[in-house]
Design a protein around this nucleic acid. Structure first.
Lengths: 168, 168
DNA sequence: GAAAGATTGTTGTTGACGACAACAATTGCC
DNA sequence: GGCAATTGTTGTCGTCAACAACAATCTTTC
């Protein structure tokens, strides 16, 4: 990752060394991003890649990825939710949630209980093992969050959460 | 997307209606996120999904996705770059860039020129058609950026760019 | 109460994407 | 001159979003 490479380059005309066209220039890191700086999407994408990689690395021992963590957290806080409700709340495809739950159920962290009221749906619950495991996951996730603070600054992280609070 | 659903829920104990376990609760949208609020990664992920969807929608007529736009922009601003240099600068796999360039070259937007100096590498350039097309792409991308401003606020967007400037 | 329509979980496909591994051609190093 | 490294390419694997189709089950409507 290029944490602090050359930025602030908004020229529209090609740069030095444009010449004819048979000379590949890549020595050094003075490659301008042009219009890319100033695009929120680009910065957010790069940041998201970094943040996910750190999350995965920090929770490597317990083998939990961000999406799995979000599913477990929501079920833990709202026992009895249906799959559709979880999918809608987290903004993931219900088709994808099926596989996620298959995996989590195999690992004895979650159980699907057939509902008596609506026999189409399943009521989702954490197992006892899942409860204690989630506690550990949360501690590790908090550690990851401290990495984020160290990376962008405590105050900036708080500000970022405030700005994006409408998307959660 | 749940733009302004119930937030600020940091309880650790299960919520109302926990009961035994055969009742699926998903009526209404009072599903708490628990520890998920307070995780920058979750908010950033949701925001990134929104922002990419808007970008794709805004540039639908010209059929350009964010990654393609970033590649074209960097080549346009740095003619003659090698594939390796572009990949490194944008943080994408060089293997993936191959397919991206295949597509862009088929559409006559980019051309690979065999380098005389280093016969392993290609010097990347925009075609004349690619230059004019990129102009249009940039106008549409600017329109997308205004959507972002409308969504999170002009000042917040600027602040966000400032916070994440280290990742570009 | 029965038919028509909607919802839930499931399976499958498609395509974008990141991560790796292997390979031939070429370059740089010693 | 020979060996390691680099560049572009091809391929595989797993994650992920977006759809489409389906059976079982509600819900609505007549």
């Amino acid at each position: 990752m290029p944490p602090s490479a050359a930025r602030a380059d908004t020229r529209h005309s090609p740069r030095k060394r444009a010449g004819n066209g048979a000379a590949p220039r890549d020595v050094g890191d003075d490659v301008g991003l042009d219009a890319l700086v100033g695009h929120a999407g680009y910065a957010v994408r790069r940041f998201q890649i970094w943040i996910f990689q750190d999350f995965i690395k920090t929770l490597r021992d317990v083998d939990i990825r961000p999406t799995q963590y979000s599913v477990l957290t929501v079920i833990g806080a709202n026992p009895g939710l249906s799959q559709m409700a979880v999918a809608k709340r987290l903004g993931i495809e219900r088709a994808r949630l099926v596989h996620l739950l298959d995996s989590l159920e195999q690992r004895k962290l979650v159980k699907r209980i057939k509902s008596k009221e609506d026999r189409r749906s399943h009521a989702l619950h954490l197992t006892a093992q899942g409860e204690t495991a989630l506690e550990k996951f949360k501690r590790l996730a908090a550690e990851h969050e401290r990495h984020v603070e160290a990376k962008i600054g405590k105050e900036n992280r708080a500000q970022l959460l405030r700005i994006l609070s409408g998307f959660t």
